[in-house]
């Protein structure tokens, strides 16, 4: 669906240059909800601007649906843009147009006749659950409603890809969940491929099935979400399932932190462990959440100092759990 190959973006600055994207290779499959996460300054905004063709990459290719975006003429590019719908953090609706007229804008641009436009706008507003708010101006809508209008507008020309740049970063948690549910629902119903750029791990946890971690302009990790979480080096497990900081260590106990996914490991491993090694186990901290229909968890277990942890760690690894260094 989307292939980025050796994508590079260099900004010239006084006295040198900044490499914002450094040979980014990425493959996004049709119908995926693909999250791109990374710390501030990693290059997320640059990546999204290149994908949206708001900035030209310095080198490399962006191929959407077999069409090379990086080598099309400006004229063709305007047409190719209809293949991509974009959702913005600050929505960027035209404030002097009603919701319906905002959704109508991309259709006007594409030359759709007025009657067909009206019909399509009604469909789109219904699709995002705002059938009765078409006559409202953006100033009369809540943040979540505005973003729904933004999503409807992005879908107007039936794009193959929905590019979402921090779509929920300006919203409260409840509204965030509603918008993410809507995106998932749209993917299921329309088969549209969704790319979500975000700094919020909770967004990845709630909707993404694939994820890429961007670090200093490079893709550090990418793949199916559960695989990346399962990769101990990716840091995704601790980012998605943060545990409260360890207090003062209880005298005579050592802690080990384990991550498990119900897809790979038996859910009752703690009691199995206790029986098998005849040890007492304290649960010092735990975080368990549903991710993609699996139960995903991280636990900090407390063992008596006398107990040799080595065989326990080995056994847990056999069960498919990942054990962090104590």
């Amino acid at each position: 669906m989307i292939t980025l190959s050796s994508l590079r973006k260099v900004y010239p600055v006084a006295g040198g240059e900044i490499v914002a994207l450094d040979t980014v290779d990425l493959e996004v499959g049709r119908g995926a909800i693909f999250g791109v996460v990374g710390p501030s300054g990693a290059g997320k905004s640059t990546l999204v601007r290149c994908l949206a063709m708001l900035d030209r990459p310095t080198s490399g290719k962006i191929i959407v649906n077999d069409e090379d975006f990086t080598s099309t003429s400006a004229r063709k590019l305007r047409r190719a843009r209809h293949r991509i719908g974009m959702v913005f953090q600050h929505v960027n609706l035209l404030e002097n147009r009603t919701a319906a007229k905002n959704v109508s804008y991309p259709l006007e641009i594409a030359g759709v006749p007025a009657a067909a436009r009206q019909k399509r706008v009604a469909e789109l507003l219904a699709l995002v659950g705002l059938a009765d708010r078409g006559g409202s101006y953006p100033a009369q809508l809540s943040g979540g409603q505005k973003q729904r209008v933004g999503i409807a507008r992005a879908l107007a020309n039936d794009p193959d890809v929905l590019l979402c740049d921090e779509p929920t970063s300006a919203l409260d948690p409840t509204t965030t969940a509603e918008i993410l549910t809507l995106l998932k629902d749209l993917r299921d119903r329309l088969g549209v491929t969704i790319i979500i750029i975000t700094h919020e791990m909770s967004v990845v946890k709630q909707v993404c099935d694939h994820v890429a971690v961007l670090e200093a302009g490079r893709i550090a990790y990418s793949g199916p979400l559960l695989d990346v979480i399962g990769d101990p080096d990716s840091g995704m497990a601790s980012a998605l399932l943060p545990l409260p900081a360890a207090g003062t260590p209880t005298a005579g106990r050592r802690s080990i932190t384990v991550t498990f996914s119900s897809a790979k490991s038996p859910a009752d491993f703690v009691s199995t462990l206790a029986r098998r090694f005849d040890v007492d186990i304290a649960i010092e901290a735990a975080s368990v959440e549903p991710v993609q229909g699996n139960s995903l968890g991280r636990l900090r277990l407390g063992l008596d100092h006398e107990v040799d942890p080595a065989p326990i760690v080995e056994y847990l690894q056999e069960l498919g759990l990942w054990v962090e260094a104590a």
Binding site: A52, M53, L54, R78, R79, R81, H82, I84, M86, F88, H90, N92, L93, L94, E95, N96, R97, Y105, P106, E108, I109, A110, R153
Partner: peptide
């Protein structure tokens, strides 16, 4: 807001459309 212009570009607007439908109208 510059974001509105970006949005118009991403939707495939020509300069003329950006000027009349976005800049001047807004």
């Amino acid at each position: 807001d510059r974001g509105k212009i970006d949005a118009a570009i991403v939707m495939g607007s020509s300069y003329r459309q950006i000027i009349t439908k976005v800049l001047v109208r807004e």
